[in-house]
Amino acid sequence: MYKSFVFFALIVLLTHSSSAQSFSDAMKEEINIYQKIYDAPLQVAGKPPASFKEFYSQQPFVLALVFTRCVGICSPFLVNLKETIQLQPFEKDFKIIVVSFDPWDTADEMELLARNLGLKSDPKWIFAVTDSIDQMNRSLGFDPVWDSVRMQFDHDALLVGINGDGYITKKLIGLRERNELNQLVASIHNVFSPTYRLPNPNILFSCFNYDPISGKNKPGLGLAFLALPAVMAVGVLLIVSMSVRKRKIL
């Protein structure tokens, strides 16, 4: 009970801090989009060496970046991801590769992390380390900072979608909802996800207004602006015609 409470409090705290930084996170999620991931060599415990290319050329994957000594976001981040995926399986298949960005981590430690999460025997999940952390991070636009006082990395909880050609299709920072994960998974399968602008009181002349509750796009006042110039032109034509005829008669 006590553990659950602490876990819940932690989630609320992290989600809150995530939303407080939503602008910068939104911008960060755009960094290196549609760039290719660095083809870093990967080591999975008990498996022959491989690389990102060998994985994405078989199947698109979602990449999660953590480190085993992490006392902050890493565990809730992975637990949340695991539960979201297990609760309702996705239509299209993909792998989840969890890679450590801590040079101290070993393949065995990552295997231990998989076991603790109950994911060691799940073929969907791969836990790996790489000796090319800097190149990998640079290609992902991921920038963890080592805090020597806390002996921890200051980092984002980053989830990266990689499609079958090795391109970064979408990035999510923080603990995110199922529908956002759906978009991530759709993106790695090269499926387009439409997004709509939410109502904004400063936008007076929208062509269409999206109603997030009904999911419908209703015609707006802006459409009238498309017809207005043609109406004005016809008006000018009629006014000019009438005025020149009037002068003729006079």
Binding site: N202, L204, F205, S206, C207, F208, G220, G222, F225, L226
Partner: peptide, 14 residues
């Protein structure tokens, strides 16, 4: 100065 914002779709159409 931000109190009026245009609709991107309307502007693209126009």
């Amino acid at each position: 100065k931000g109190s009026f914002v245009n609709d991107a779709l309307l502007m693209k159409n126009l």
